[in-house]
Nucleic acid binder design. Sequence first.
DNA 1: AATTTTCATTGAAACGTTTCAATGAAATGT
DNA 2: ACATTTCATTGAAACGTTTCAATGAAAATT
Lengths: 329, 329
Amino acid sequence: MATLKDVAKKAGVSVATTSYVMNGSKLITEETKEKVLAAAKELGYRPNGNAKNLKKNKTHIIGFFLSGFTGPFFNELLEGIQVTVIKNGYEMVVCASDDKHRLLLEQYVDGAIILNYHIADELLDSLASEKFPLVVLDRDLENPHISQVLLPNKHGMKQVVDHLVEEGHQRIGFIAGSEESFDGESRLEGFKESLATRGLSFDKKDLLRADFTEISGLLCMKEYLDKEADYPTAFVSANDEMAMGAIKAVQQKGMKVPEDIAFTGFDDIDLSRYFHPSLSTVCVQKKQWGRIAAETLFHMLEKKHAVAEEEITIEFIPRESSLKGVMRD
Amino acid sequence: MATLKDVAKKAGVSVATTSYVMNGSKLITEETKEKVLAAAKELGYRPNGNAKNLKKNKTHIIGFFLSGFTGPFFNELLEGIQVTVIKNGYEMVVCASDDKHRLLLEQYVDGAIILNYHIADELLDSLASEKFPLVVLDRDLENPHISQVLLPNKHGMKQVVDHLVEEGHQRIGFIAGSEESFDGESRLEGFKESLATRGLSFDKKDLLRADFTEISGLLCMKEYLDKEADYPTAFVSANDEMAMGAIKAVQQKGMKVPEDIAFTGFDDIDLSRYFHPSLSTVCVQKKQWGRIAAETLFHMLEKKHAVAEEEITIEFIPRESSLKGVMRD
DNA sequence: AATTTTCATTGAAACGTTTCAATGAAATGT
DNA sequence: ACATTTCATTGAAACGTTTCAATGAAAATT
């Protein structure tokens, strides 16, 4: 691989000059510039980012660290971040990791956005600094160099519970995801709190545990229906997929949704609208989430343009799966 | 940020020793090792990946370069790549770019998988080398250091056309995506070729152009229905989303799918099964695609374990949208 | 006891850049 | 014609690692 030195030699100038040409310094003569560029082209010169970053102690890359790529969830979020990153003249790399987190540790990026429960709080705490700010999307952390941009899950749950109570439900079950998920758990908490506010009690035998997948929702609901004698008239799920699975389980038992048991989801994935019955759910603006996360990071990184306190938009969308009377949508 | 030098000083040993400790050399005494590790911990030492890569001329990172994150398409593909990458002791970064491709150019990665029509053939051609192999998923390129792992689109289209012809269709239209898409265009070609094989002709006024989104499919079909007097009895779409949009347009005109016009999609996204009518489509094993792409790259990178010639699995799935008689799923 | 071998440690060069400070030539001002 | 300023170019140090070759102490062999 040709280096600056090779280019310099070929062009008959110094390495310094070559570097200046590459970086568009205006001190350089048009003539030398052309010579150098020609030499670079001929040699197929490509800058070495590692050397550059090492010298400048700056990469102009930010990282987005997640736990995996599955789920219909990330695309919009990613898009929201990406747009903002480009707008700020940076690049983004997306990395999935479950144990080593090498890319996060070895100073490849100037800052990072985290949505990865595999990464311990303590690690993030020790990593974050003035020069290496972090934005977390999946935890609550007290650190001057870590900002959190969290979904208003409780707010969403309040809307869900309000809706179900207005529809006349008194005993409401909950389908939770894995306990590692911050959003999942805060949805559960929000649910319980909203119930309490409404003066309703929650029996913990009506709490089902699954893992956010459709199949896990189906299985745990099946088991529940077999085990219990009487059921809640409604179930709230921590996400859409599990709700769909659970609905199938109910239907397979010969019961009707929403007549026998009503259901609500969370996230509003594309499918929710098409599912049968269409799924009542909470629509989350993931693109906005991504945008705000990135803006927050750049604010910390560049200390300018104060970032507006903006809550991510969240809205309950009633559909067939929880509407007794009217059928709509 | 603490460096090796700082750690060395604190531990009272040389930089070289410190480096050896960090890399787990077995020559080092247990005693010095502990001293160094303690010092490193105390200073919060983090290795500098850029310096490391610069020295070793190797990153153990491969890149996956795509044009954007939208579409329900990438997750599985990414998952397939990621698993294989980890298995090989590497890391993956995912980058979206539309013009500069800095991360691809500046030697941040040891090799790359490309699915990004923004990147010119010529650039890839000039980039690829023994030390920097490439796998392309979206073009056909003749270069010893570039491998292509392509979907068997034509094969899939043959199955689609066979099916429709057996269902009695003689005049079949096509809904194409943007011309930049390699897969989109090769699906169109495959469609035309299969028609020809069957002895059927294709009138280019039955070729609609959209951009792979549902809304674009809806709009172009609407326009077509308004403009033309008589229609094909079936439409083949280059992907599922456009087919769904087009079906809606037909339904809005008061016609029935599949009775008046039958439709097929391509990809088998989750929604296809739930759509009304459920969508006949070609199921593509994207995870397998990703796995093979990564395996191919590592083969070039490490010159070992010959990679089996394996075609990506593709299978036509008939559903309601193209079945006149029976209704099935 | 003298020689060789093994072993832990180290100094220093190298990787490919950037950028400060220095150089000297040309242009400007007197 | 001389002093000054401006300008294009350059040498060299630095960024944080790795790793070769060298060092000298301890262990093993004679």
